[in-house]
Each structure stands twice: as structure tokens, then as C-alpha cells.
Design a protein around this nucleic acid. Structure first.
Lengths: 341, 341
DNA sequence: CCGGAAGATGTAACCGGTTGCGTGCTGGGA
DNA sequence: TCCCAGCACGCAACCGGTTACATCTTCCGG
């Protein structure tokens, strides 16, 4: 294989093959109207020269960019990485490229939705677990291209997600079945700047699970904290300082649950003997920490979103545009019956 | 602000403004030769119409794509996500887009380096902590565009990384200073298919730290395992089955160390009383697990790589092309003096 | 032996910008 | 008053493909 020669363009290849650009183009795009022999000859030459078409030029005449934007608030945490992995694997199979936009804080978000830099650069947008304000949603509507939401939902748009309420119910129900009655929740606080839906849904699941079991919801056992790496630990500290601490704690996600575990360990509280802990996600490190949790399929959410985007691009929305993927309880070593039972 | 109108092109804007495309182009690209008044007028019109130039068309005439490829073996683990975050933040500031390629297993790797799909799609490539075979390296050389390696090194190319040997020495020296003499290492096994450099370097640091302290290197205390989520746990199990288990364990990275912690916890071994554990990375969850570790600046490595790529694109390699970032010992609760001291 | 359909290939316009060069206008110095 | 520098702007070619349409063969039935 020779050196990939970027200086080479289709006209050169055509000249070398003794045909016109049109014929080369037809061969390369698999269009009909070229004799089998010519086709073979050109293909061989192209391979020999390591010629590749310019996607930009191609885009210009064809109209589609062959790219899809993936927008996420950050790339560091497991969930986003996993969703991205799912998206990428599907797109790669289709020969599409992914343009990743990290839109972290409020300022970035504002400029992103004001400038909409994805305009004209991509054919579709996949928004990953993004707290979108009403105004931002309207901006997305104006984009004039398919928008798919992964790990969340957005009016007017296709989405792939889990049922947060159900996931929370699965977690809390497991605690109830184990015999717990004083069950706390450490939740992520939602603000107008951060209108993230899962906290409310999971809180709802927590509440209804308790109510369905005939247990009362004690507001002192629900701790709301702004999102941070140590909010689980902070929340647990607060719960431990109560007169009657809970016997079980449901964390908004695994990272929160792991934070709670740290506080319990430092306080010398035995887990799960004195306090049980459960989270949501099934973060890879949850396994290493023996954390009981409710697994959500992150990579699958990414993959399905990508498929949805492709469907939408194909113009034929064959399947359902609103996909909810199932979650599963994964019992490990941080939950058990309460001490007094 | 009106709806971003994708149907609008520069000719339309020019017609509306009563000028030629050339003038609009000059205004939009900040080129000289346009009166201040015309400039203002066109800018206002452009804003009013929410017109954005087509980056592809622009690329075609200008020659550069305004995009950079980021190639990584996977996106899920913290390190890659953090590097990506660093890259993205720098690129965004420069108005460049990032095309992310996930090249996971051997097959993907082979096709990636054979087809070099990044050709003509980007101006530069950032390769993140990627085990690159000799043949693949040569393919990269042929690419004819700047290549920067983040979290590793590659002949002929710029790179940003940490000194793995030093990092390992920092970890092991900390254990030695705490009084340990039987120090084990759980390392990632390198194969021809996976020619990843850090394992060898970190092993080297482990060895030299021991030798410098006058300690002998016991080969039974070095466990090599193929990379997996539970290799830390598996390695620790093996170490625990020795006649004389070590009093301290150095994990190839934090995930390995956390795996070791799980085995110790399950075996009922007290940490750090009976066995101390240390890793490398300072994974965000290391803090939640109170894991002592050597911190490496992942996001910075990404950011510096991006800057390097930009420098290289600018044609003026101002600074050093080989950057080594410092690592720091972070002492938490999984290390302490050995029991018998 | 002839007309015409089907298939292979070339021609040229077009996608949406960028830019070298040319033109027309203005103002200042001789 | 005349000449020319200098500025503002338009013209048109070009970037590298795609594709509608035209042209030329070739092979068939009549």
C-alpha cells in the first residue's frame, strides 16, 4: 500500500484512468451506469493510489455532511463515556463521523444554544442527558434537523432513556423487601439553571414505593444537595447527625451511594449490618465496591439513539420514536436486612 | 433572534445587502479591504438573518477543515474522558471541532489504520493513550498531518504524558518510607497485540525504587494479568494465596488498586493495618474510596495536546514538542505502616 | 439492411464559499 | 490643474466533488 496521497484529487485519478471525473465519481459512490470492467479498473487504481474522496467536497454537492453531533455536559463521568461509546460504535458501522461538543456550565450552554455551532456542520444532533431549559429547547427546534435525546426526554423530539421512576422504585422496593422502614434518599438538587429531570422522577419513585408499602415519607430523610463529587458523603454526614438515622439509604446514583459509603466507613458504621446502601447506574466501580445498585444500560442508550438518528435521517421513522430501556436490580454486598429485624 | 435559516447562503446575504459575495466573505472572515460602515451593516444583517457560513464550502476553498480527530481505544474509563474534556475545552476556545474515533479491539484497529478514515476530514490527529504497533506508527507517519500523542509517546511525533517510571517510584517509595519491605505490584500484561508502554515503565519504577532502598525484588510479588475490570481483584487473590503475602500492594492504576481493595475486604483483611494499597491516577472515585494514589493530570494532558496540535498547525512549533507533566502523591487512608513495625 | 432502445461515458453546471486581480472613485502633492 | 497612490468593491476562477443531460456505441428486432 502506497502513501495516502492527499494532494491527489478525483480529476487526477480520472486522468490516470483515462476517463472523466464523472465516471470515477460513479464508481466510488456505487452509482450504476459504469461497465463492470471499467469499474474494476478504477477501483484498483484508486486502491493503488490510496485515493480517498474529500468528504467536504462531496458534502457540498450532495447536501449531507456525513456527520452527527453529540452534545454532552461533560465527558468524564462513566455514563457519558458509555453513551458516547454506544453512539460511536453505531455511527462507525454506518461510516458516519461524530462531532463531540462538550457544553458544561451555564455560560457555555448559553453561547452554544445562541450560536448553534452545529448548524451546517452535521446532519443530526444527539443530546445526551442534558438539562435543557425551555428556551434552549426552542432553539433546538429551530435547528431544522433531527434531534435525538439520549438519557432524557424533550418535547417534540425522539428519545431513548430509562424510566427513572421505575428504577428508583426497584431500588427502594428492594430495601423495603429486606425489611427496612426508615429509608433515606440523597438526591441531586435541581435548579432553574440545571433543569435536570431524573432527580424529580427518582424522588417520585422513592415516594411511591414507600407509600405503596404503607410506609410514611419522612421529609427529614430526604436530602437535596447540589451536584458535586462528594455530595453523597455530605448527604450521608447529614443523615448520620439525625436523632434517628435511617437504616437504609438510596443514593441518586452510584457515585452518590459510594460517597455515602465513605461517610459510613469513616464514621465506623457497619454496612450493611447497621445501614444499607443502594444506588442507580451500575457504574463499573460499583462492582469493585460491592455496591448493590439498579443497572441502567448506558451504552445501549447511546446505540439506540444513534439508530434513531439514522432512521430520522433516512426519512423513514420506521420504529417507535420514544424508547424506554429496562433497568435491573443488581444485588451485591451493601444491602441486607436491618439490624433489629 | 430569528430562526437560523439554513437555506440561506452567502449569495442571498450579499443580494440583501446590495453587495457582492466577496464583500460579505471579507466581512465574515475579518479580512481587510471593507469600509467600516459596510462592515457594520453586513454584520448586522448577518446577525439578523442568523446566517452562518458553511464550514464545508469554506474548507473547500480555504484548504483547512477546522476539525481535529481524537482517537482513543475507548471512551468509558475516566482517564480517556478526562483527556477528551481537556482537548475539547481548548478546541472550543479556538472554534475548532473535534471528531472522535473509538478504535477498540484489534480488528477495529487494523481497519482504522488501513483505511485511515481521518484522511481529508481533519487537519490534525490527537492519539490518546493508544498502544500503537510499529506498522500502525508508520501508517500515522504517512498521514501527512500533525499527530500528537496524549498519555504516551510515539517516535517522530509530539507528545504529552507523565513519567510513568517516576510515578511508580513515587508510589513505591511512599510504601517503603512507611516501613514496608514486602511490596507487591499488580500489573497489566502487555502483548504484541497490545503494545502499551506504561506497564513496563511502571514496573521499572517499582523495581528501581526497591533496589534504591536496598530491597530485593521478589518475582513472586509481581503479578501480571491481562487487562480487565476485575484484574485488580484477581491479582490480589493470587497474592493472598502466597505463603507470605505482601504487606503492601502497588496497583498499576486506581482501578486495579480498587479491585485489590475488594479482595482484601472480602477476605477480611484489614486495610491499611495488615495490607496497604496504592494506585496511580487519582480517579475521582479514589477520593470516595479513600484510596492513596499518585495523581496524574489527565485533563491537562488533553489540553496540552490540543495546544500542541494547534501550534503544529500554525506551522510555528514555538514550544517544546515533548511535554512531561508532573505527578503527585496523594495520601489517603489505604496506606500506613506495616503491622509488625 | 435499417431504426431505435439500452448501456457506457463525457460535458458542464452547480454546491457555497474564498481570493487574486481589475476597476472606479477619492484625495493629496507637485 | 493634473497625476497617481490608495481604498472599496466587484468579477470570475477555483476548491473537489456530484449529477442532469447530451453524445456515442452497440446490439436487437423487423
Amino acid at each position: 500500500m502506497n502513501a495516502p496521497n492527499t494532494r491527489l484529487n478525483m480529476a487526477d485519478v480520472a486522468a490516470l484512468a483515462g476517463v472523466s471525473k464523472a465516471t470515477v465519481s460513479r464508481v466510488l459512490s456505487g452509482a450504476p451506469g459504469v461497465s463492470e470492467e471499467t469499474r474494476r479498473r478504477i477501483k484498483a487504481l484508486v486502491k493503488d493510489l490510496s485515493y480517498v474522496v474529500s468528504p467536504d467536497a462531496s458534502r457540498l454537492s450532495r447536501g449531507s455532511t456525513g456527520r452527527i453531533a453529540v452534545v454532552m455536559p461533560h465527558t468524564t463521568s462513566w455514563f457519558y463515556g458509555a453513551v458516547l461509546a454506544g453512539v460511536l460504535s453505531v455511527l462507525r458501522a454506518e461510516g458516519l463521523d461524530a462531532l463531540v461538543y462538550q457544553v458544561a456550565d451555564g455560560t457555555e450552554s448559553r453561547t452554544f444554544f445562541a450560536d448553534l455551532p452545529v448548524q451546517r456542520r452535521v446532519d443530526a444532533v444527539i443530546v445526551v442527558a442534558f438539562p435543557v431549559t425551555e428556551h434552549e429547547r426552542r432553539q433546538l427546534d429551530l435547528l431544522g434537523m433531527p434531534v435525538v435525546v439520549a438519557g432524557g426526554a424533550l418535547e417534540h423530539h425522539a428519545h431513548v432513556r430509562i424510566d427513572d421512576t421505575t428504577a428508583a422504585r426497584q431500588a427502594v422496593t428492594h430495601l423495603i423487601r429486606s425489611g427496612h422502614e426508615r429509608i433515606a434518599m440523597i438526591n441531586a438538587a435541581v435548579t432553574r439553571e440545571w433543569p435536570y429531570a431524573p432527580p424529580a422522577d427518582r424522588l417520585d419513585g422513592y415516594r411511591t414505593a414507600l407509600e405503596d408499602a404503607g410506609l410514611t415519607v419522612d421529609p427529614r430523610l430526604v436530602v437535596d444537595l447540589p451536584w458535586s463529587g462528594t455530595m453523597g458523603a455530605d448527604g450521608m454526614d447529614r443523615l448520620l447527625s439525625l436523632d434517628r438515622p435511617p437504616t437504609a439509604v438510596f443514593g441518586f446514583c452510584d457515585e452518590v451511594a459510594l460517597g455515602a459509603l465513605r461517610s459510613l466507613r469513616r464514621a465506623g458504621v457497619s454496612v450493611p449490618r447497621t445501614v444499607s446502601v443502594i444506588g442507580i447506574d451500575d457504574h463499573p466501580l460499583a462492582e469493585l465496591c460491592d455496591l448493590t445498585t439498579v443497572r441502567q444500560p448506558a451504552e445501549q442508550q447511546g446505540a439506540r439513539s444513534a439508530h434513531l438518528a439514522l432512521d430520522l435521517l433516512g426519512g423513514a421513522p420506521t420504529g417507535e420514536l420514544h424508547v424506554t430501556l429496562p433497568t435491573h436490580l443488581v444485588i451485591r454486598a451493601t444491602t441486607g436486612p436491618p439490624e433489629d429485624s
